[in-house]
Simulated scan of single mutants.
Amino acid sequence: MLRELVKRWDNHKVLVRWLSRFFLDVDCYLARRGIPRLREVGLTSFHELVYREVHSTAKEAVLELIHKEREGEQIDRALVKNILDIYVENGMGTMEKYEEDFERFMLQDTASYYFSQGVKVYPRGFLS
């Protein structure tokens, strides 16, 4: 599922880039009128039609891969990075989606994991 999501995201970005180039005159006209540009509309479309539907499932799958790596298994780190890039890029220039939809859960999961392993986890800045 994760590989397919990365493939579709990459295809979507290529198509949006080519549409923006092909319709450059229209895109410039839209920008002068204060209408969202084609790239922004493309990202918004992916976000609303795909990202909203799969980000929760993708989060669980990535957390499972992280669990496997903690237990000594080899995982596809490039795949994990590519999925996390999707979270970041869907924040449209901010880290908001990554932080809301993944980081918060990963930090909770990490604390739970190390707690179950008997390791004390301190909040940021606690020891400094």
Rank of each mutant, 00 (worst) to 15 (best):
L2T: 05
R3D: 11
R3V: 09
R3Q: 13
R3W: 02
R3G: 12
K7R: 11
R8F: 06
R8D: 15
W9H: 07
D10I: 07
H12V: 00
H12K: 03
K13E: 12
V14S: 07
V14Y: 05
V16H: 02
R17D: 15
W18M: 15
W18V: 05
L19T: 05
L19D: 14
S20G: 06
R21M: 10
F22Y: 13
F22E: 12
F22I: 11
F23N: 14
F23A: 09
V26P: 01
D27A: 06
D27W: 00
D27Q: 00
C28E: 14
C28Q: 15
Y29P: 03
Y29I: 12
L30E: 05
L30V: 03
A31K: 06
R32K: 08
R32F: 01
R33D: 09
G34P: 01
G34S: 09
G34K: 07
P36D: 10
R39S: 13
E40N: 09
T44L: 03
S45E: 14
F46S: 05
H47Y: 03
H47S: 04
H47V: 03
E48M: 13
E48V: 08
L49S: 13
V50S: 04
Y51G: 13
R52M: 13
R52I: 11
H55V: 09
S56G: 11
S56D: 14
A58F: 00
A58H: 01
K59Y: 02
K59P: 00
E60G: 03
L63M: 11
L63S: 04
E64A: 12
L65G: 08
L65V: 00
L65Q: 06
I66R: 10
H67D: 15
R70Q: 10
E71Q: 15
G72L: 09
G72C: 08
E73W: 00
E73D: 12
I75E: 12
D76A: 12
R77S: 12
A78M: 06
L79C: 02
L79W: 00
V80W: 04
N82R: 15
N82F: 02
I83H: 00
I83E: 01
D85N: 12
D85S: 08
D85G: 01
I86M: 05
I86Y: 02
I86A: 02
I86H: 01
V88H: 04
N90S: 04
G91L: 04
G91Q: 02
M92D: 07
M92H: 08
G93L: 02
M95T: 13
M95K: 05
M95D: 05
E96A: 10
E96I: 13
E96M: 10
E96R: 07
Y98M: 08
E99I: 15
E99T: 14
E100F: 05
E100L: 10
E100D: 08
E100I: 11
F102W: 00
F102G: 02
E103R: 10
E103V: 04
M106C: 12
M106I: 03
L107F: 03
Q108C: 11
D109Y: 05
T110F: 07
Y113P: 05
F115L: 11
F115E: 13
S116N: 10
Q117V: 12
Q117M: 15
G118H: 01
G118T: 06
V119F: 04
V119T: 12
V119L: 09
K120M: 12
V121A: 09
V121S: 05
Y122L: 10
P123M: 07
R124A: 14
G125Q: 06
G125T: 07
F126M: 12
L127A: 06
L127V: 09
S128I: 08
S128G: 15
